[in-house]
Write a protein that binds this DNA or RNA. Structure first.
Lengths: 280, 280
DNA sequence: CGCTTAATTGACACCAGTCAATACCCGTGG
DNA sequence: CCACGGGTATTGACTGGTGTCAATTAAGCG
């Protein structure tokens, strides 16, 4: 049972919003401005687990009888080939539920990409909750659709775009997925939460290419590299353009909220869903 | 309203199982051995539409207030770039429901890849059916999961494998997705339903590469090319190996059936679901 | 029997992955 | 305080696979 504590030396920096501006009052880790799902805090501390990066959550081989709720951090759904090649198929963000369906195939696994706060839920208990709570059912359905949307983007990118375009697209999307501070002058600073390796394996390219592209972008004046984990976006519109996500941008981000309305119409419920009182 | 009749000259051949062996009694078009979903025939002829290949079903721009049930044929979910590049994100098979959610983004569209028999369902009516029929809800959820599984395979392939491996994988999977006749000697004949162009755009490669790979495989003795639309698999295990889907193979195919059991447990219902009495 | 479209084959160039070496950051221990 | 060590990021040189372009063949249909 690998339960690990918070202070992992080499990652403290990565998980903070460092640039000097206290826009959000709280300690503001990954919680900051995340429109996906509802990063509810788990009430019962007994079910909470704080995980260091690269810690295994779902192994794929060992089915594992738990469902996970993400309180904070980013998880990755990945797949390894025998020769070591890895492809990240999807990322999971705070508020999302992982491990109930489809994440426990042979060969695929789920791990933490960053320092993460999870909440463990017993599978049977979760199924009971599902059968009783329409709101939760609707939420789960919604999340599944979100995952499909994101996967559609990734598939499109991998198939039709080059490495540079893909990276630009990801960067643009990251303004909504990771801590991003808009500055008065229209620029903004992104805290890159994912290590290079994960970015590379997500976009099906290499760390070398990532580096090259990033520096090329900085020479073009699109971004400014403060340090490897902090990028200043000088021209976000251009980034969106380069990433060919003009149309996808809104949908992929604001989708969840809009979609919920349509679903609620027939899947029942009225309240705005605190969603999970986790465990108990 | 582009309702077209069955006899499209240049595709008659492609849509038949031609090789001399009447294994399946009926006229046996795409209906033959399709484990995905339940290709129920639509009772009311008024809602039925037979579509020629490359006919638009969902435009993406014009929302379109219909949901579609696939009686026969294969549909493709695709996305175009401004410069003409196209990526096929997913295929839909008989028994599946299309157009309810997530297929009507900006930029993406759904078209018929082969001659197809559809059934048009009014969106509002469909929503009503959904709210009343637990079975249908469960089925829809199940299909969403199936699409995720298939998309996971595609994403994995695009990201981690080369064109040759991807094609081999697709071919292996096609034994369950398209008409495939197992012969006594262990070999089998696949009727390729998709035109080269669609295969290329699905696997993010070119028709030239497809051709080259196919002929290379025939020289290696893995397959035999009877004609462009009919391949004889001399060594299916090798094909599975080359496509790196050893583990995925079963799951991707038999998944739907198994999964249903788990879902039904809490999403209610007992019967084996005729699923849709379409329209009315 | 000629037309259009699809499929094949060949020649070529270039992008991006691979390998290898260096620079950088950070935490540790002397 | 500084030297060391491990990991990450960066940079450079090289090569091979694949896409691109163009031409040929084959097939299907009127």
């Amino acid at each position: 049972m690998e339960l690990q504590l918070l202070s992992m030396p080499q990652f403290t920096e990565r998980n903070l919003v460092p640039v000097g501006s206290p826009t959000c009052g709280k300690p503001c880790g990954v919680r900051c401005r995340l429109p996906l799902g509802t990063p509810t805090t788990c009430g019962d501390p007994r079910h909470r687990e704080d995980r260091a990066p690269d810690s295994k959550v779902i192994s794929g081989d060992a089915p594992g009888h738990d469902v996970w709720f993400i309180r904070s951090g980013i998880l990755r759904l990945q797949r390894h080939a025998l020769d070591g090649r890895r492809q990240i198929l999807s990322l999971f963000f705070p508020g999302e539920i992982v491990g109930f369906e489809g994440e426990s195939h042979e060969g695929v696994s789920v791990e933490t990409a960053t320092l993460s706060g999870l909440c463990r839920i017993d599978r049977r208990k979760f199924e009971t909750m599902l059968s009783e709570d329409k709101t939760l059912r609707a939420e789960l359905f919604r999340q599944k659709q979100d995952q499909l949307d994101r996967l559609h983007w990734l598939t499109w990118s991998l198939g039709a775009l080059g490495p540079e375009e893909r990276l630009c697209g990801l960067l643009a999307l990251s303004t909504r997925l990771m801590p991003y501070q808009s500055l008065p002058d229209g620029t903004g600073i992104l805290s890159v939460q994912l290590p290079r390796r994960d970015i590379a394996d997500l976009l099906a390219t290499t760390v070398e290419s990532i580096s090259r592209i990033l520096h090329k972008l900085s020479e073009t004046g699109v971004i400014e590299i403060r340090d490897p984990a902090h990028l200043r976006f000088l021209d976000l519109p251009r980034l969106i353009e380069l990433g060919r996500i003009d149309d996808l941008f809104d949908r992929l981000i604001s989708g969840p909220a809009k979609r919920r309305n349509r679903l609620d119409a027939f899947m029942a419920l009225a309240s705005d869903s605190p969603v999970l009182s986790c465990g108990r």
